[in-house]
Simulated assay, not measured.
Amino acid sequence: MNCAVPPSNLADRLAVSFHWRARAVTDAELNILFEGGWRERRTGAWLAAVSRRDHFRRRL
């Protein structure tokens, strides 16, 4: 998916929106999620993966 071109359908728009919102989460906020329960850790893992934060790979 090319994020420079406006998406035409709802699924693509949601994916682009989620990607940019995931990138807005700071590394410090992700670390807080990783210290929580299983739900918080899973959410942090999704956010790290979607925003392509390779430096969290070992931790995951």
Rank of each mutant, 00 (worst) to 15 (best):
M1P: 00
M1I: 06
M1R: 12
N2I: 01
N2E: 11
N2Y: 06
C3P: 04
A4P: 00
A4C: 09
A4S: 12
V5N: 04
P6F: 06
P7F: 05
S8R: 08
S8V: 10
N9I: 05
N9Y: 09
A11D: 02
A11I: 08
D12N: 11
D12S: 12
R13G: 00
L14I: 13
L14Y: 05
L14V: 14
A15R: 03
A15W: 02
V16R: 11
S17R: 13
F18D: 01
F18K: 02
F18P: 00
H19D: 03
R21W: 07
R21C: 09
R21P: 09
A22Q: 05
R23H: 08
A24Q: 14
A24H: 11
V25L: 04
D27Y: 05
A28S: 05
A28L: 09
A28N: 14
E29K: 09
E29Y: 07
L30D: 01
L30C: 07
N31Y: 12
N31G: 13
N31A: 11
I32F: 10
L33A: 09
F34L: 12
F34V: 02
E35W: 03
G36S: 06
G36E: 05
G36F: 04
G37E: 14
W38I: 13
W38E: 14
R39C: 08
E40R: 12
E40F: 10
R42W: 09
T43V: 14
T43D: 12
G44A: 06
A45R: 02
L47G: 07
A49P: 03
V50A: 02
V50G: 01
D54L: 14
D54N: 10
F56L: 06
F56A: 10
R57H: 07
R58V: 14
R58E: 08
L60T: 13
L60P: 00
L60R: 06
